[in-house]
């Protein structure tokens, strides 16, 4: 069962604002989902290899060639805020 603090913690990790007054509803929904998921946790999977991909293949490699050209004006056409070719964001603190 997720606590209110769990919800606050994952909301912050996911960078999604959940207002205090909305916490209880989100907590309720998430716990419903984890109730559904619970069934899977009890399965004995000793010795089973995790399946990360739907295909059992290995990575194909690209030749090391420059194939992309400058399209920054096209790419920045939909940007929220740009100046001098840079994307602008609220001040970054190191």
């Amino acid at each position: 069962m997720l606590s209110r603090d769990d919800v606050r913690r994952i909301a912050e990790l996911a960078r999604i604002e959940v207002p205090e007054e909305g916490l209880a509803a989100v907590q309720h929904d998430l716990n419903g989902i984890f109730g559904l998921v619970e069934r899977m946790r009890a399965v004995d999977t000793a010795g089973v290899e995790p399946m990360a991909h739907a295909v059992d293949l290995t990575q194909r490699l690209r030749e090391d060639k420059v194939t992309d050209t400058d399209q920054h004006e096209l790419f920045q056409a939909c940007a929220p805020q740009v100046e001098d070719g840079l994307y602008l964001v609220p001040k970054v603190i190191e």
Binding site: M40, R41, T45, V48, M51
Partner: peptide, 13 residues
């Protein structure tokens, strides 16, 4: 481990 890795294992089953 309890969720994601376990889910991947059951996925293989």
């Amino acid at each position: 481990d309890a969720y994601y890795l376990q889910a991947q294992k059951v996925r293989r089953l």
